[in-house]
């Protein structure tokens, strides 16, 4: 497997507080990489650095390199807007646009950037709602507001919305933490299906979830990458004492 993303010497700050210290890691293509660690360890900040969302927060900045297919995301003259079209993102709380219907939400990323015929909208919406395993549940109510769906459905709608921009990578920030167990299982199944097409990085505070779905796992603590390896290795035979303490529930 080739490396899709290579992170080299990444540091990130909120004002004067340093949130990430010298992170180096490579994410292989068409795999699921889980980021675990106690809250406040910098795992969300880490994936928000990958698609340059971190800098949208007032007073936040970062340095270092993030190489996406050989090109530095932070290179000079790189437009963060274009980067984000290649790196889709799903947030902790489902956030469909309240002024848009289910159908419009699914294709929001496209119609906000260019005109689409009604026919194209229908077709594209169906394609990505299917890919996000939501089509069967919503096909009869496509014109209802996106916010009328249940939390789990809203989150899959947000995944469909992210996929419709045709990204190569899907970044997910605790995508199931606000959902019930059944919805969580659906999202996990969906991710497993999606990795054939996409490279997925998922932040989770749920270790079982990381163990279930990911190929590789990274353990963050206090803004540092403590250990990174195959999920099997991390969960059965971690080399760092702190990783072992965390996955066996001895702290955090």
């Amino acid at each position: 497997m080739a490396d899709k993303i290579a992170v080299e010497g990444l540091n990130a700050w909120f004002g004067k507080t340093q949130a990430l210290h010298n992170i180096n890691m490579a994410v292989p293509e068409n795999s699921i990489t889980a980021i675990i660690g106690p809250s406040g360890c910098g795992k969300s900040t880490f994936i928000r650095c990958i698609n340059r969302m971190h800098e949208e927060i007032r007073g936040a900045y970062s340095n270092g390199k993030i190489i996406l297919d050989g090109e530095d995301v932070y290179g000079s003259g790189v437009d963060p807007v274009l980067i984000r079209r290649r790196l889709g993102m799903v947030f902790q709380k489902p956030n469909p646009f309240p002024t848009m219907s289910i159908k419009e939400n699914a294709v929001a990323g496209i119609i906000l950037n260019k005109r689409m015929s009604r026919h194209e909208i229908e077709e594209t919406a169906e394609k990505y709602l299917r890919r996000a395993a939501l089509w069967d549940e919503v096909k009869d109510q496509l014109n209802k507001p996106g916010v009328s769906l249940s939390g789990g459905q809203q989150q899959r709608l947000c995944i469909a919305r992210a996929l419709a921009v045709e990204p190569e990578v899907l970044l997910a920030d605790e995508p199931a933490s606000a959902l019930d167990p059944i919805s969580t299982a659906k999202i996990e199944d969906l991710f497993t299906d999606l990795k054939e097409r996409y490279t997925i990085v998922v932040v989770t505070h749920n270790m079982q979830q990381a163990a279930r779905i990911s190929d590789r796992t990274a353990f963050f603590l206090s803004g540092r990458l403590i250990e990174y390896g195959t999920t099997d290795k991390i969960f059965t035979n971690p080399s760092d004492k702190r990783t072992e303490d965390y996955i066996t529930g001895r702290f955090g």
């Binding site: 698609n51 969302m53 984000r84 079209r85 290649r86 956030n95 469909p96 929001a108 992210a162």
Partner: peptide, 12 residues
Amino acid sequence: TLREASFALGVP
């Protein structure tokens, strides 16, 4: 969160 959702879709 709505602004973020839109930024993350690559909308200026």
